[in-house]
């Protein structure tokens, strides 16, 4: 049997350049990671399939949570193909799989991360409750206004990001503008509330004007004081 020598296949090599992205974490790493998460949330897929160089130049051996940095990046789908800066003798890096370093490389300008079209936040939504709110019940609606067709009993509590409208008597607590909305108001057909609050400013029953007790009223915030106006 004669050996036939076929020529070895020719290795085809052509050049292709990818832009490797260099990530430069800064201490404290927890804050940096949450900023990264925020960025990823706004531009999903930006890091997917991209070669990443991790630059430890702004960290040192004592940086807290340094050991967890690489796993944390992996968890976020970031493929680290090279590490620069830092020193692999740092004890925190002992467990890291340290990729081979790349030679060369030219720094390019800082890259602006494209932002996805962030879906428009849903506008304020209104919660309509047809039943009376009983003592001990708590309604929390940070998204917008709350409209209650019945009454709010003594010992009940209604909190809303927007305004609160009570078509029956308001005998419990009404806490409007909980997200810091000073424009919110409280409306009721009969003001007998134990406590009303708008954007953190509150008044107890005792601090309210007795003339308005059991009458239709609205409560608004002007400056830092709650004003009680008759509702006619």
């Amino acid at each position: 049997m004669s050996a036939t020598t076929s020529p070895l296949p020719r290795i085809r090599i052509s050049g292709r350049s990818f832009l490797a992205l260099t990530l430069t974490p800064e201490a404290p790493l927890e804050d940096w990671l949450s900023a990264l998460d925020h960025q990823i949330a706004r531009s999903a897929g930006f890091f997917a399939g991209k070669p990443i160089i991790l630059d430890l130049g702004m960290l040192d051996a004592e940086t807290q949570h340094l050991a967890d940095l690489l796993p944390a990046l992996k968890e976020r789908g970031i493929r680290v193909m090279g590490i620069e800066g830092g020193d692999r003798t740092w004890p925190a890096l002992a467990d890291w799989e340290w990729p081979e370093n790349f030679a060369g490389g030219r720094a390019s300008a800082e890259i602006a991360i494209p932002e996805d079209d962030v879906p428009e936040a849903p506008g304020p939504r209104t919660l309509i409750l047809e039943n009376p709110i009983r003592s001990g019940q708590q309604v929390v609606w940070p998204d917008g206004d709350v409209i209650i067709l019945g009454s709010v009993a003594s010992g009940a509590e209604v909190s809303a990001g927007g305004s609160i409208h009570v078509y029956g008597p308001l005998r419990g607590r009404a806490i409007a503008g909980i997200g810091g909305n000073g424009e919110a108001r409280i409306f009721t057909r009969a003001l007998e509330a134990e406590l009303v609050a708008i954007d953190g400013f509150y008044a107890t029953a005792e601090e309210m004007n007795a003339d308005q007790t059991s009458k239709p009223a609205q409560v608004a915030l002007s400056g830092e004081t709650l004003t009680f106006l008759p509702l006619t």
């Binding site: 001990g136 003594s154 010992g155 134990e194 406590l195 509150y202 107890t204 029953a205 005792e206």
Partner: peptide, 17 residues
């Protein structure tokens, strides 16, 4: 807790914050 009454008996229900 959940069925408070002492504030009423003490006449303090209008001052609870």
């Amino acid at each position: 807790v959940g069925l408070r009454n002492l504030d009423l008996v003490m006449g303090a229900e209008r001052r609870v914050v």
